[in-house]
């Protein structure tokens, strides 16, 4: 991940190139702005949510060069040239991503405010570990808070996704 290589005086902006869901965005941003704010306000993709803005709740999780990252703790200028994937980048013209479909099938969410973070974390988890145990799922998702569900339906959703993506059923 690149570090900001230039400094800016107060009020100055820095040019960044964000690759969001495969589309390139050339933007002038105030260097103190968070990646989450720039994705939501400048790129206009509001599916990435801000729950705590101090890196605990995980609702803002995006994939940055494939790695689950807190978009509230990352500056937009740090994402210059980084491939960002948000919840809007999961579905294709053919329909929902298997993780989205599985979470739908399992009735995983209620208010769903936390769902973008869980979906992105799950996509990364199943890429690295296509057949996780329940204990592994719970540990991997413990960086995301949900207040509605008690998590069981989300764990079910991950297990359903394993099946949809061709892994074994648990």
């Amino acid at each position: 991940m690149s570090q900001p290589s230039v400094s800016a005086a107060p009020g100055e902006t820095i040019a960044v190139n964000l690759q969001v869901n495969g589309t390139s965005h050339s933007l002038e941003v105030d260097p103190r702005r968070s990646l989450a704010d720039v994705i939501r306000e400048d790129v206009g993709l509001t599916g990435t949510h801000l729950g705590c803005e101090h890196g605990v709740c995980g609702a803002c999780t995006v994939l940055a060069d494939g790695e689950p990252s807190r978009a509230c703790l990352m500056l937009a200028v740090q994402a210059d040239g980084v491939e960002i994937t948000t919840i809007e980048g999961l579905a294709t013209d053919a329909g929902m991503h298997p993780v989205q479909q599985a979470m739908h099938d399992a009735m995983s969410f209620q208010c769903a405010f936390c769902s973008p973070g869980f979906l992105m974390s799950t996509v990364a988890l199943l890429r690295d570990n296509p057949e996780p145990t329940e204990a592994e799922i719970r540990e991997e998702l413990s960086g995301n808070l949900c207040r509605c569900t008690g998590y069981q339906s989300i764990v079910d959703g991950v297990e359903t996704a394993v099946q949809l993506m061709g892994g074994k059923s648990s």
């Binding site: 990435t48 989205q100 969410f109 769903a112």
Partner: peptide
């Protein structure tokens, strides 16, 4: 919700 198209208060722009 699952495709990021919910409209929460901070999303209204």
């Amino acid at each position: 919700f699952l495709v990021g198209e919910g409209k929460f208060i901070a999303d209204l722009n």
